Each structure stands twice: as structure tokens, then as C-alpha cells.
Simulated scan of single mutants.
Amino acid sequence: MRPIEPGEFTVADLELTPDEGPRYELVDGVLLVTYMSSAIHQRALGELMMQLVSACPEHLEVLPGPLEFRPDNRLALVPDLLVLPRGDSTTRWVEELALAVEVVVSTTRTVDQVLKPVLYARAGVPAYWILDVEETKLTVLELVDGVYVEREVVVGEKVFEATLPFPVEIVPAALLRER
């Protein structure tokens, strides 16, 4: 990447980052860098993706990161899972989401639980799910009048019956079980 001053990063700078290695995200011109996740993070992510894919209607698709969500030139986020309108884009980014999912671990807790809900809401993403693998908890946020409201917090073996973006049942503890 070219040397630039903090606060001046744009999505054009992200095009110069490598496809492998750290995850690069952009928030109001500030670059966020996170690193590889743990096996439990990947297990939960894989299980959740399989459940969402099996229930997903044809007009939507479920994709894993590192596909970027870029609603504007100064914001680029990389959700762990994305639900978006089905399309044939050839870019490594999308501009519209129906659901963003983040799998929280200790190193991403503040960003995923404090910063990202504000950013996804500001970008108009209808639903944001936060799966906390350390607490076996799924927090479901839905956009109401431009602000996320907590629809439900599901812990352990409790079943969450989603309606948005489509009907599906999720049990947090089941996402973390080894097969």
C-alpha cells in the first residue's frame, strides 16, 4: 500500500491489500486490521453457514467473508457471514446486505459488539447477529427507524426462530459442538 496519513484511507486503498493474511476493514477512513480466527470460531461459522444455506430462499444467498460490505467510499466491513441479494458480481465487495453476522471472540469483542452495530445500522443493514462463542450466545439485532433494537438474546440450547431475513431455527450450543 502507498504511504498515507491516518484518516485518509479509502476503499481504493483496500484494493491494494493482499487477499490472504490479515483482514482489512475501513471505518470512516481508519484502517482496522484483525488476524486469523480460532478453530471454535471457524466451527461455529461453518455450522451457522450450513443452517442458513439450507433455509435460504432463492432470491438471497449466504456467503462467508472475506467478501467486503462497502456501502460507501469510507466504509468497508468484512462480516464473518453475509446474506445478500443473489447476484453475479465479479468484485470482492458488495453494496447491499440483508444480514451481517459476526462471530465474537475475545480479540474482536469490542469491535463486533460496540462499533459494528452502529456502522451496520448507519448503512441500513436490516439485521445483525452477534454469535459469542465464549458465552454460547446469539444476540439478534433488527433495524427499526434507523437504529438496531435487540430482538432476542438466545443462550445455550434455547432455540431462536428467525423471521428476518428468512425463517430459520438456530440453537447456539449446536453451532459449537464437535461432530
Rank of each mutant, 00 (worst) to 15 (best):
P3V: 07
I4E: 03
G7E: 13
F9L: 12
V11W: 04
A12R: 09
A12E: 15
E15H: 12
L16I: 00
E20W: 07
G21C: 10
P22G: 04
R23L: 09
L31H: 04
S37C: 04
S38G: 03
A39G: 04
I40K: 01
Q42T: 06
A44L: 05
G46M: 10
E47G: 12
L52H: 00
V53C: 08
A55Y: 01
C56Q: 00
H59C: 00
G65E: 13
P71H: 03
R74L: 12
R74D: 14
P79D: 15
L81H: 09
R86L: 13
G87Q: 15
G87F: 02
R92D: 15
R92L: 10
V94M: 03
V94P: 01
L97V: 13
V101K: 01
V104Q: 09
V104A: 15
T107S: 11
T108I: 04
Q113M: 14
V114M: 15
V118M: 15
A123H: 01
W129A: 13
W129M: 10
E135C: 02
T136S: 09
L141G: 14
V144M: 06
V147M: 08
R151C: 04
E152W: 06
V153H: 05
V154W: 03
F160A: 11
T163S: 08
L164M: 06
P172S: 07
A174Q: 14
L176W: 03
E178C: 01
